[in-house]
């Protein structure tokens, strides 16, 4: 498996916003893959909004689901 790089430093510039999951051609976000989830979580472990991360709506929904599953299985805390 290739190592994918997830960047959240997407500038909010119209036309330049790109979803990292779309660019990596990932259909689904896995709740076990912490390297994929971690950049999209706040310091206080809240879900970052797609306004700042540039994730598309479909993937944002997948991401939030994955994060909530990871929280349930105690691989990610609810709050810090």
């Amino acid at each position: 498996m290739k190592r994918t790089i997830f960047s959240t430093a997407q500038k909010h510039v119209p036309g330049k916003r790109r979803c990292t999951f779309c660019t990596n051609q990932m259909k689904h976000v896995d709740y076990k893959d912490m390297s994929a989830i971690r950049p999209f979580v706040d310091f206080m472990k809240r879900i970052k909004s797609s306004y700042y991360t540039g994730v598309c709506l479909n993937h944002q929904k997948e991401l939030s689901r994955a994060i909530k599953r990871a929280r349930f299985m105690a691989t990610l805390p609810y709050v810090q």
Binding site: M1, K32, S35
Partner: peptide, 9 residues
Amino acid sequence: VSYKEIKKE
């Protein structure tokens, strides 16, 4: 993807 591979990454 097995846990070992994830760890390796």
